[in-house]
Design a protein around this nucleic acid. Structure first.
Lengths: 113, 113
DNA sequence: TGGCTATTTTGCTATATTGCCAAATAAGAA
DNA sequence: TTCTTATTTGGCAATATAGCAAAATAGCCA
């Protein structure tokens, strides 16, 4: 039986899956601005520190971030800043969808603000 | 209580999540080459047609693909081909990780083929 | 109409993810 | 050493996802 979906797709999907969570996406963007320790990120995210730690571990396992211990804290930073280039395209998708919905609404005679 | 993670991140994460599955990633790449109907994709993927249909519905709901009925078949095509630009960066991440692992192995005196 | 083809939906089970709490770990300061 | 801070881990419940098979739906053609 032929293997149709190659391991290559698994590897790529893992990275996209790691990015596919609002909190992790937020963290990625934050780390794009500057490195941060768990404590700081927890403050920004607003959920339990263990939750943030687990999100960071997902990002680390997928190879998207690196960590470095300095003093009493562990600082995380983005491994490949190019992942932020995705956002532009994603915004294009979102905009396209929004416009599509607007057109549908207008065709139905619904007035939008 | 301040809302820390904005809806914007939810929307973006949804698109990344939709891409974060090996089969769906395969389908996206296939649709990048040319539009395809469910039948053709099912053949290529090698799993049940209902499974492929569900994956396509995920991609459609996230706005990544469009469908058009022609004759008895429904043809899917990529909405925003730019999503394929991600792959280059993802490969960079994967390559970086692979090299990191190789270095670790070499430091441990493990010989690689 | 009935049969055929293409696709989607539903029902189901197995598995994975999320997020919180509490406990464990690590390391610096007193 | 004990106290404190920073982070990770384990346990657990709620929720979401994946994939198959069967049933339902839609549209074409004789």
């Amino acid at each position: 039986m032929e293997q149709k979906i190659h391991p290559q797709y698994e590897a790529r999907a893992n990275i996209l899956k790691a990015m596919g969570h609002p909190t992790r996406l937020f963290i990625i963007e934050e780390l794009h601005k500057s490195e941060r320790c768990v404590n700081e990120l927890t403050e920004m995210v607003g959920s339990d520190v263990s939750t943030v730690s687990k999100h960071l571990s997902v990002l680390k396992n997928s190879g998207l971030v690196l960590d470095e211990k300095r003093g009493t804290s562990i600082y995380y930073r983005l491994c490949c800043p190019c992942v932020l280039d995705f956002i532009g395209c994603i915004e294009t998708v979102l905009k396209t969808n929004a416009e599509k919905q607007m057109n549908i609404a207008q065709c139905c005679g619904i007035k939008l603000k």
